[in-house]
Amino acid sequence: MTVQMDGGELCSCGKRGCLETIASGKGAIRLAMERLKDPGVSSGLRRIYEENQAVTAKDVFDQAAEGDPVAREIVEEIVRYLGYGIGALCSIFNPEAIVIGGGLSNAGKMLIDPLHKYVEQFAFPATAKDTKILLAKLGNDAGVIGAGYLVAQHFNEPIEM
């Protein structure tokens, strides 16, 4: 889903400005590294990068939880774009629930609580009010568990010859 009309980052799908380039673990890392290019930026993320030569999405959310202003700015940007995307989906499809999985779902309430504000801002009022926003219970294991389930279903069905 394109959320940045001005171009944005190149996505793995080949387009620019996709939600995935911002509201994902890779997006959080990219946003952090962009902020750290400025040597004048003071942040716990800089310390983490200097110690590990890397920053993770978990580092971004952990630093935001500790009050780091740069990390908070990044989380706010992620949540705003995610809210925009979910708001659009709610307005079009009026779903009963939206389930958020993947690495960002590990942020828990830090992601979900402010997300409601943006979904309400961007979606039709009735759909925003009625749509539940939930965190996936299977996290990053959902794909593997789903594949295992499909295999199990396949072997429980009679094989036609």
Rank of each mutant, 00 (worst) to 15 (best):
V3C: 07
V3K: 02
Q4F: 03
D6G: 03
C11V: 11
C11L: 06
K15W: 11
G17D: 07
C18Y: 02
L19T: 00
T21C: 07
A23W: 01
S24R: 00
R30D: 06
E34R: 14
R35M: 12
S42F: 12
Y49W: 10
N52T: 15
V55P: 13
A57I: 01
D59N: 09
D59W: 11
Q63E: 11
A64F: 00
E73Q: 11
V75W: 05
V75S: 06
E76S: 10
E77S: 06
R80V: 09
I86H: 02
A88S: 01
I92D: 04
I98H: 02
V99C: 10
G101L: 04
L104K: 04
A107D: 15
A107G: 15
G108K: 14
K109E: 15
P114A: 14
K117I: 10
P125Y: 07
A126P: 02
A126F: 04
K132A: 14
K132I: 09
L135P: 07
A136D: 11
A136F: 02
A136C: 15
K137Q: 12
G139F: 08
N140Y: 02
D141M: 14
A142W: 02
A142N: 05
G146D: 11
G146S: 05
G146M: 04
G148C: 13
Y149F: 14
L150N: 10
L150R: 10
L150Q: 12
L150G: 12
Q153E: 15
Q153V: 14
N156D: 13
E157D: 14
P158L: 07
